[in-house]
Amino acid sequence: MPEGSPFPVQNLPYGVFSPPGGDARVGVAIGEQVLDISAIWAGTPLGADLATGSLNRFLRRGRGEWAYVRRRLLELLTGTEQRRLVEAHLHPLDRVRLQLPFEVADYVDFYASEAHATNLGRIFRPDGDPLLPNWRHLPVGYHGRAGTVVVSGTPVRRPSGQRRGADGAAPDFGPTRRLDIEAEVGFVVGAPSRLGEPVPVGDFADHVFGVVLVNDWSARDIQSWEYQPLGPFLGKSFATSVSPWVVPLEALEQARLPVAAQDPPPLPYLEEKEPWGLDLRLEVRLNDAVVSRPPFRDLYWSPAQLLAHLTANGASLRTGDLYASGTVSGRLPEERGSLIELTWSGRDPLRLPDGSLRTFLEDGDTVTLTATAPGADGVRIGFGEVTGTVVS
């Protein structure tokens, strides 16, 4: 295995791949290869659930089965007794086609980074409190569009919509002029819940299988005209890119830490008894130039608190639900996870290594998000990439 690989044996992220001339099936990434785990359990009910173009049937099996499969894979990949079985079902990553790893049931996006919310508040409300009164009391979020969640590598077509007219003029309709990114982390629900029964903070790991990277593309001019009073709509629903690999929660035990102190203390249903903050280091590249390194560890609300709030009214979880953190930003300018923050709404353009300037994305621009986290045995594990290129 290459040194520094994002996919050491301590990771084993799950994805869906198609080998040359073959049908889609579930695999795990190991080094520069993918292991066809549907073949490992061929002839069993588990194998049938893995020999599909989606993780959903496996996710539905629940936490006990997720743990069993991971233990067995670790035995196979670190032992020598069944090396031939493993080697027979390894495929080079550069020869397979990666697909959307799960069927997205519902999609919810949150607004859980205090630095991001503060930056936007200062941009849009320079004479007022940057945080609205509810922000430190509950995780603010909105329901997105599951049907436009796409796998990394899918081109992102510049969306059209209504845009506010200049100096109070009537709005017009056309392609967005302020296409932006949002560097986020997403959480994939495996085990469903019953309608009417909230999921407590402490049951987070019983329902969430793993973590993906998310780029929630945003048309800022469309969004700013339409969002009052009901919030994001067409400015957000045209594309949300996710990474092809789902890193299981079990691989992230070494990354767990408490979230920052919350003031005021959260209401009882949001009190976290065990830490579910995560020490993830994100990186944003625009046309191969690193423009930001957002720290997920600074998130104000933890992923467990987000799930508890999402279901607090009795909304049920479904296998394949995806919810995301919202833009991850840190306190420093170089840690901002969106262009609207990095350029302060276009006031301070970014200068790229080729000398070109960017306020928002141009056609042909490619954005790539990556992340790493501490793993077992002192290694760092990766999440792969989520990338997208803007087309007109």
Rank of each mutant, 00 (worst) to 15 (best):
F209K: 00
Q162L: 15
P275E: 10
V208P: 04
S54G: 13
P264W: 01
W41Q: 13
E271D: 05
T366P: 10
V390I: 15
L100F: 06
S193M: 05
E253V: 14
V185L: 08
P92D: 02
I123E: 08
F296D: 03
V149T: 00
E385R: 15
Y14M: 03
R145G: 03
V104C: 06
D221G: 06
S345E: 13
P258T: 07
G190Y: 06
A183V: 14
Q262T: 02
D363T: 15
P133K: 07
G388V: 08
G326R: 09
W245Y: 14
P175N: 11
R84N: 11
L213N: 00
V140C: 08
P248M: 02
G355A: 12
V199C: 00
W344T: 05
P6D: 01
V28H: 06
P175C: 11
E226A: 13
R256G: 03
S241C: 09
G320I: 01
T366S: 14
D109W: 04
Q10L: 05
A371N: 04
S54I: 14
S392I: 11
V149W: 01
V259M: 10
T319V: 02
A371Q: 02
P2V: 11
E385W: 09
Y14I: 02
A105T: 05
T44G: 13
G31V: 06
P8G: 04
D94H: 11
W245R: 12
R358V: 05
N134Q: 12
R293D: 04
T366C: 14
T387M: 09
E184V: 09
E81N: 11
L90Q: 02
L257R: 07
A183C: 15
P6A: 02
S345W: 10
F296A: 15
D167R: 14
T372W: 04
V386F: 09
E334A: 13
D365M: 11
L322D: 01
E103V: 07
L352A: 10
G186R: 09
R71W: 13
Y111K: 01
T154M: 07
P266Q: 01
A39H: 11
Y300V: 03
G382F: 07
P294N: 05
Q10E: 15
L46Q: 06
G355V: 09
V328N: 04
W344R: 07
F58T: 07
V96T: 07
A289L: 06
G375R: 10
D321K: 13
D348P: 01
Y227C: 02
T240D: 04
H137R: 14
P268C: 03
W217E: 07
W135P: 00
T319E: 00
R177K: 15
P244K: 03
L73V: 06
T148E: 09
T154N: 12
G165S: 07
A289S: 12
I181P: 00
A48P: 06
P258R: 11
G355Y: 09
E271T: 13
G147K: 04
P333W: 08
L249H: 03
P8F: 03
L90K: 00
D288E: 15
I340F: 03
P264E: 02
G231C: 11
Y300C: 08
V26T: 15
L195V: 08
A169M: 12
G161C: 13
V28K: 02
T366H: 09
I30A: 10
I340E: 08
G79E: 05
W135S: 04
G202A: 14
M1R: 12
R122K: 13
Q305G: 04
D221V: 06
G337T: 00
R285L: 10
